[in-house]
Design a protein around this nucleic acid. Structure first.
Lengths: 211, 211, 211, 211
DNA sequence: TATGAATGAGACTTCATTCAT
DNA sequence: AATGAATGAAGTCTCATTCAT
C-alpha cells in the first residue's frame, strides 16, 4: 500500500484561493466600502477561513488595494478602447462614451468602491485609495491624449480642463444611475455627455483662439 | 452668598447638547462615512458620554439621519438662491452655479456624507441614505422648475434630463475637488459647467423642435 | 381672566402613579424575572419616566419587593378561603385545591415571579426573594393549621411534611401548566392532587400510629 | 535543551477550551439564570477572553442551549436507571425515586436552570428553553413507559396523568429543597412521593375499571 | 499551502441610578 | 409630585490580527 494521498480533492492551489478571496472581496467592498468590509464577511463569502486570507494578503489594507488593482484591470479590458478608428471627432467621442457606459453598467464595483474611497478622509490614507487615485490619473492622462488628438486646437490647459470635466460628468452620471437604479439608461446619458463635451471643446478652442 | 450660578455639575440643557452632538457628528460622518463614524468618536469630540448621545438619538442610524437633515437645511440657507434677478439665462445659470460652488467649498460635509451614503448598498438601508435621496429629489425638482422657466422651449422630459445632467456634473466636479484638494478652483469649473449646460439646453431645444 | 390652572389634566396623583408603576412591573417581572425586568421597560409600559419610578421606589430591589407584596395580597384575596365550611375532609381539601388552582390560572404572575426568584442564587439576595419566601412560610403555616384540624391524627412533624408535600405538588403542577399552556386543566390536576394528599394524610396517620 | 513541552503561550486545544467554557457557564447559569449569566462572568470563571467564547459558540443563546444539552446528558448518566431489576412495583418506584433525588442533590444545576428557563416568557424564546422542554418531554415519555409496565391496568391517558403528576411532584420538591437548603432530606421526600404516586396509580386503575 | 484557535480592542447599546429643576 | 437630562458601568458581540501546527 503505497500511501497515496487519498484526501487530495482540494490540493492546495494558491492562485485559485487568491482569486476566490478577491472575488468575494470585490463584491463586498463594492457594496459596503472600506469600513463596511470585514474580513469575516469576506471569509464567509469565499469559504476560506479568515486566517487564510492573511496568508494571501498582508492585512485588510493590502486586500482592498488588491481589489482596486484587479478590478481596475478588469474594467480596462472591458472598455476595449476603439483604437485609431476612423470617424469624426464627435463619432469617436460618442463611441468611447458608450463603451465606458456599458462597462460601468456591467461591472460597477470598481468605480463604486473607488468613489467611496476617494470621498473618505481618514487620518492614515488606505493604500486602496492611493491606488485608485493613481489609476484615475492614468486614465485622465490617456483621455487627455485622445482629446489632444481629436481637438488639436486646444492647448494643454484646455485639454486638461476638458478631460477633468469629461471625467466629472461620467462620475456624476454613474452616481445618478447607482441611486436611481436599472431604469436609468446610462448609455443614452453618456452619449449626451459626449456631445456636450464635444461642443465644449469647440467653445474652448474658439476662446483660446480669440485670446 | 448671593445665588451665583454655580453650575454645579453641568446644568441640563437638552437643546444645546443636541446641537453639540450634531456638530461633532457632522464633522466625523462627513469625513468618514457611516461605518467610520463611531459613537465613541462623536462622544469624544462633543464631550458628552456615549450614553448621553442615546438620550438624544434612538440609535446611530437616527443620529446620522439627523445629521443629514440638519446639514441639508444649513446648506440650503447657505446657497442663497438669487431669486428673480434679471439677466440673460446664461447669466442667471452662471450666477447660480457660482453660488452652489461656493456653498460646497464652505460646507462640503453634507454632500460628501450624502454621496458616500448614496453609493453604499447595504442589506438594510440606513435612514440617513433615504433622507439624503429625498432631499436630493427635492433639489432636483427645484432646479427643474428654474430650468423650465429659463428654457421655455424644453418639454418636461428634456427639462428632466437637463436637470439630471446638471446635478451629475455638480456631483462629479465636487468629487474632483475632494480628490484634488484646495487648489482646484471649483467656482471656475462650475461656471464652465453652467455654460455647457446652457449650450446643452439650446441643443435639446433644437432637437425637440426638429422632431 | 382669573388665571385658572388650565393645564391640570394630570394633577399630581401619587397613589395612582404608584399603582400604574406596579401594574407595569408585575407584568414584566412576572414574565421575565428579576434581571429581565429593566426600569426602562417598566417606564415604557406605564408611561412614566424612569426618574419617576425612583421617586416612588428607592431602587429596583425595592420595586420588585413591592411587586411581590402587592401581588401576594391580590392573590390571597383571590383565593377566597372557604372558611369553616362543612363537609368531609376530602371535600374540603378538594374545594380548597380547586380555589387555589383557579386563582393561579387567573393571576399566575405572583407565583411565576416568586418561583423564579426562589430558584436564583445570587451573592446578595434580592429583597423580593426574601419577601416571597416569607409569604410562602406564612402560607405554609396557614395550610398546616387547616391540615391539623382536618387530620387530627397527625402529629406536628407529619402535618409539616404533608403541608410541604401539598405545596410542592401545587408548585410543580403550576410549572407544568406554565410549560404546557392553556390546554392544561389545572383545576382537574389540583383535584387529583387533593385526593392524593388526602390519601397521604391517612397513610401518614397510620404510620405514626404504628410507630 | 531537549524538546520540553514549553507551552509557549497556550497551545490551541479546542475541545478542552469548549469544556472549560461550558463548565463555567453551567455553574453561573445554574445559579443566575439566562439574564443573570453574563459572558464576562463566564469569561472570568473559565479564564478565556470573551471573544474566545464566541469562537466556540455563536452567541449567548447558543452557549446556554449547549449548557442545557450537556448538563442533561450528565444528569441522565448520573441517574443510572435501575434497568429491569426485580421487586414489587412499589419497591421499584421507590428505588427510582431515590436515585433521581440523589442525582438532583449532586447536580442541581441542570434542573434549576431548566426550571428558570421554563418559567420565563420572553418575546423570542431562548433556544435553551426549547431544548429543556424537549428533553423534559423525552423524560416524560421514558417514565410513562415504565409506568405502563408497572401498572398495566392503566390506560394511556391515566399513565400520562400519573407521569405528569410524578414529574410535577419532583419539580416541586426540588424547589422546596432549593429554598430550604441542605437540611431538607430530598431522598426521604422523594420516597414519600413514590409511595403516594404508587397509591395514586392504584386509585386511578380502580377508577378506570369502574368506569 | 493553509487553518483552528485565540485575543485585546473596540463596536453599539442598555443598565440602574442621580440630580437639578 | 414629578421629570428631562445626564452618566459610568456593564451588556453582547465583532473587529483585525496572530500564531502554532
Amino acid at each position: 500500500m503505497t500511501s497515496a494521498p487519498t484526501t487530495r480533492k482540494k490540493r492546495a492551489n494558491g492562485v485559485e484561493s487568491r482569486q476566490r478571496i478577491l472575488d468575494a472581496a470585490v463584491e463586498i467592498a463594492g457594496e459596503r466600502g472600506y469600513d463596511g468590509t470585514s474580513i469575516a464577511a469576506v471569509s464567509a463569502k469565499c469559504g476560506l477561513p479568515a486566517s487564510s486570507i492573511y496568508w494571501h494578503f498582508k492585512d485588510k489594507d493590502d486586500l482592498i488595494a488588491a481589489v482596486i488593482e484587479r478590478s481596475f484591470e478588469a474594467w480596462l479590458t472591458a472598455v476595449e478602447l476603439p483604437g485609431e478608428e476612423a470617424g469624426t471627432p464627435l463619432e469617436r467621442v460618442t463611441a468611447m462614451a458608450a463603451n465606458v457606459a456599458k462597462s460601468l453598467v456591467d461591472a460597477p464595483d470598481f468605480l463604486r468602491l473607488g468613489l467611496m474611497l476617494a470621498l473618505e478622509r481618514r487620518p492614515t490614507e488606505p493604500r486602496g485609495r492611493t491606488v485608485f487615485l493613481q489609476v484615475r490619473d492614468i486614465t485622465h492622462r490617456k483621455i487627455a491624449e485622445v482629446a489632444a488628438t481629436l481637438f488639436p486646437a486646444l492647448d494643454e490647459a484646455a485639454v486638461d480642463t476638458l478631460t477633468t470635466y469629461a471625467i466629472a460628468g461620467a462620475d456624476g452620471l454613474f452616481v445618478h444611475r447607482e441611486v436611481k437604479g436599472d431604469t436609468v439608461d446610462l448609455v443614452a446619458l453618456f452619449e449626451l455627455h459626449a456631445q456636450v463635451v464635444h461642443d465644449a471643446a469647440a467653445r474652448l478652442a474658439k476662446e483660446r483662439q480669440e485670446a
